[in-house]
Nucleic acid binder design. Structure first.
Lengths: 117, 117
DNA sequence: TAGCTTGTTCGATGTTTCACGAACGTCGAA
DNA sequence: TTCGACGTTCGTGAAACATCGAACAAGCTA
């Protein structure tokens, strides 16, 4: 588990962000992170193998959408809302609203938080 | 040249739109169409073969971002601004602003319109 | 009719992506 | 030090994608 790379704000590329958000699972991950809370890796519930989940979280991280922090042997993931807002103002908001409208990424939830309402 | 398919407003999918906008050429195409003017296919200038350009315009069309109209043997392409606005309010605007910020898709221009400013 | 123009489609190629299970490295607990 | 938990990485396929040139179809034009 080496220290993961995170792009700086200025390095965040629009194409990377768009590509990252072109997958339903990843949109779901962003949605559950949308409230700004940092989440433990193991809390995520998605219908894929853990290696695949790791892959998706890596794509989000590489694109600059999320930040991963390590603490001992476990990881915490958070949305880089402010960085995204600084780089591409309004983007995250409209994408989240659009995803909500479509209920895209509903397959993703958090443990002990069945995403009910 | 058969009649191309266009998704209805309600059928436009967020993932499709995001995927379509994850390529610099396609973002460039959207940018030159952003003023709302309908453009002739042959006016586009992009550093790819015409078969590749055709492919990119098809992806944009299939995603619901553009509309293609045929007139005799030639085609005219226009951005579906209103439809996009109805489906995903604000999305096109923020994406265009972000693309502007990054000068993404500058490789695409129009004949007799060298994208000067 | 013959030929030109226009854009699409086809086939091939190389790259990237998504998916999985298995193996691995690291850390904390026993 | 041994064990278990936690994520990452690897190896592998299947599918999708970007790209090109060549072939094609449809419509003008001569």
């Amino acid at each position: 588990m080496k220290q993961a790379h995170h792009p700086e704000v200025g390095e965040i590329a629009l194409t990377g962000v768009m590509a990252a958000l072109s997958d339903p699972i990843r949109v779901g991950l962003v949605r559950v992170l949308a409230d700004g809370r940092e989440r433990g890796w193991g809390e995520f519930r998605a219908p894929v193998a853990k290696s695949t989940l790791s892959h998706h979280l890596r794509v989000l991280r590489d694109a600059g959408l999320t930040r991963t922090r390590q603490e001992g042997t476990r990881c915490f993931v958070a949305l880089r809302r402010q960085d995204m807002e600084a780089r591409f103002p309004g983007l995250l908001h409209v994408v989240l609203a659009a995803a909500e409208e479509e209920d895209l990424g509903r397959q993703v939830s958090m443990k002990d938080d069945p995403h009910p309402a």
